[in-house]
Structures are given as C-alpha cells and as structure tokens.
C-alpha cells in the first residue's frame, strides 16, 4: 500500500494566515462603523475602493510573476492593506488618491520587495506617507464630524464628490490635532473653547474619541483572540502617555494636550492595534517588540509636537520599520542551555 509520507508534526493548529488576516479585518469593523457614523459614507467608500484596488493590484502582480493568483489572494494580506489604507485616508478624497495609494502600497511597498513577508515597511503606511507628501492639500481635508452640526453628505453627494471632483470645502473642519498644532502659544482651555470639534468632545474632540474607542475595542478583541501579543501596542501607548505626562506643562497648547487627548485623538488606536502590530515589518521577539512599540510611541509624540505634520503614526512606524532589524539583532533571546544570548551573528558581516 502506498502511504503518503508527510513530515512531522502531523497535526496543526487550525489558525491559518488567511484566517488571521480576516480576523484583523473584522476587528476594524467597529472603528469603521463609528467613522461612518460621524463622518458619513466617505470612509466606507475609501475602504471598499482601496480593498478592491489592492486585491486587483495583488492579483495582477502575481499573474505577472507567474504565481498562482488565487492561492495568494486567499491569504487576504492585500485586503488588510487595503482596509487599513482606506481607514487612514480622509473621507471624500478623490478616487485617484485611493488608486495611487493602493498602487504604492501593493506594488511599490510590498511586491517590489518580494511580496508578503518580505516587505520591510508597512505597505499601508508607505502609501499613506507618499500620498501625504505628494498631495498635502487633498490629504489634509477631513470632514467635520456630524456631532458639531457638520453636514454629512449623502451617498449620491459623496459619490459625486469622489468621482466628479466637486469641492468639499463646505464641510471640512480641522482635526483636533491640527487645531492644537496651529494654535501655539495659547492656553489649551481657550483653544478647546474656540474650536467646535474640541468643544463638542468630552476629552479628545467630538467623534475622534469615539473612533479611537472603537478601534481600541477591536484591538482588545484581537488580543483576546491572541492574534498578536500585547507587547508592541501596550508599550507604544504607554510610551506615548508617558511622553504626554512628561511634557504636559499645565495648559499651554505648546505642550500638545493632555494624556487622554493624545491617546484618543488622531489615529493613535488604529496605529497601536492595527499598524504597530503588523508582524511583517516589526521586530520579532517580545522584548524587541516592547522596544519597537515604545520607540514608536516616543516618535509619535515628538513628531506631533515638534514636527511639521499634525499626526505622526505613519512616519513613526516607517522610521521604526527601518530600525526593526537592528532591534532584532540586539534582542535575540537566550537559547536553552546557553549562558548568554548570541548576537545575531558570530562573525561580523563582510
């Protein structure tokens, strides 16, 4: 009898890569729902369009590379990239922004480096940064949250804006981070009172605090499902909070706002649970992830307060992606039976 000979182990845990990715996508749903509630269908449209285009690019590259297309699409990594990119882009941005972003993410940042598992940088963040520095105007126009009486466009209106390019100036508003950044040398209290978005919120601006809470919930679900370990996100949030405490000077807008403000505005929670935890481009060991996450937290605060851009998740993550191999080199765990941990190489490289 011819029996198949298969290498051990013969049993596997049921969790597969595709399933991991799908779980991640599921965990973004509360955040997406809240975003849609506050800002209208713009983000939903972004997410759908970006996912579709990303999958399309992925399939095209796979076909060009002569690999089985369906097999690779099934791992859903392109879907995750698309969803994250869509969430990060401002609602009602023109359609070509999404397409260019998807191209940058999948083709430039992922497939040019060899495809899934080989990309040194987070594809969605690469795309976001490229778009941000290339099209600063389009990328900085956030819709106003519905809470403050902002006008939330209907589906048709939204489609018209996105595909026909009609102006959206009518209902954009500065994000809380923008507001704080632009109003330097004022007392925070007066800034909060002046700005409708901040004024309407309870601790980090109308809408934004709920969006971040929703992403936090999604992240907690992923932690519960043990999709990733707590190290990177927790250390990132802790570092950010610590920085905010250290530099909080009791109320001037130069200090950049309170701890709660930093933790629950901008893309903090999205970054902490969906970007920083991207395994491909982060450090490998748990100790390494602690360092990696903490460094991102520090960088976020630094760039938010002293940099040119209001939010900083993407830049901080990309900078630490650079450093991930370096962190790995110094955080090799001690192997069983060895006195001390080996550096990644015994001999210096040539």
């Amino acid at each position: 009898m011819a029996l198949t000979r298969i290498t051990s182990p013969h049993t596997h845990r049921a969790l597969g890569t595709g399933q991991v990715m799908r779980t991640v996508v599921m965990a973004t749903l509360p955040g997406l729902a809240v975003l849609t509630y506050f800002f209208g269908v713009g983000t939903l449209h972004n997410v759908l369009l970006a996912s579709a285009v990303c999958m399309g690019f992925e399939a095209a590259v796979m076909a060009v590379r002569g690999r089985p297309v369906l097999f690779y699409l099934r791992d859903c990594s392109a879907l995750v990239t698309g969803v994250l990119l869509g969430l990060a882009l401002p609602p009602y941005c023109p359609w070509w922004l999404v397409v260019v972003g998807s191209f940058c993410a999948i083709v430039l940042a992922k497939q040019l480096y060899g495809g899934m598992g080989f990309n040194p940088f987070n594809p969605a963040m690469v795309a976001y940064v490229i778009l941000l520095i290339s099209f600063p105007l389009q990328m900085s126009q956030w819709a106003a949250p519905s809470d403050i009486g902002g006008h939330t466009p209907g589906v048709l209106e939204a489609l018209k804006q996105i595909w026909a390019g009609s102006s959206i100036d009518g209902y954009t508003a500065a994000t809380p981070l923008d507001t704080v950044k632009q109003n330097s040398s004022l007392m925070l209290d007066s800034v909060y009172l002046q700005d409708p978005v901040l004024a309407a919120g309870s601790f980090a601006g109308a809408g934004w605090e709920w969006v971040n809470l929703a992403f936090l919930a999604g992240g907690a679900y992923l932690l519960y499902r043990r999709i990733f370990t707590w190290h990177a996100p927790v250390s990132m949030l802790a570092a950010l909070a610590l920085m905010a405490i250290i530099f909080y000077d009791g109320g001037s807008s130069n200090s950049g706002g309170s701890v709660l403000f930093h933790l629950f505005s901008g893309a903090t929670m999205l970054g902490a649970f969906f970007i920083v935890t991207d395994p491909v481009s982060s450090a490998v060991s748990n100790r390494g992830r602690l360092i990696y996450g903490a460094s991102i937290g520090v960088l976020i605060y630094v760039i938010r307060i002293w940099g040119n851009y209001p939010d900083a998740i993407a830049f901080a993550v990309l900078l630490m992606n650079f450093a991930a191999p370096f962190i790995d080199y110094y955080t090799v765990p001690r192997t069983y039976g060895h006195k001390k941990s080996q550096r990644a190489t015994k001999k210096a490289d040539l």
Binding site: T4, R5, T7, P68, Y72
Partner: peptide
C-alpha cells in the same frame, strides 16, 4: 503552492 509538503 500546488503541492503538499512531503518527506521527500
């Protein structure tokens, strides 16, 4: 992708 992992 088209094969299963085997001893050989």
């Amino acid at each position: 992708a088209d094969l299963i992992a085997t001893d050989t």
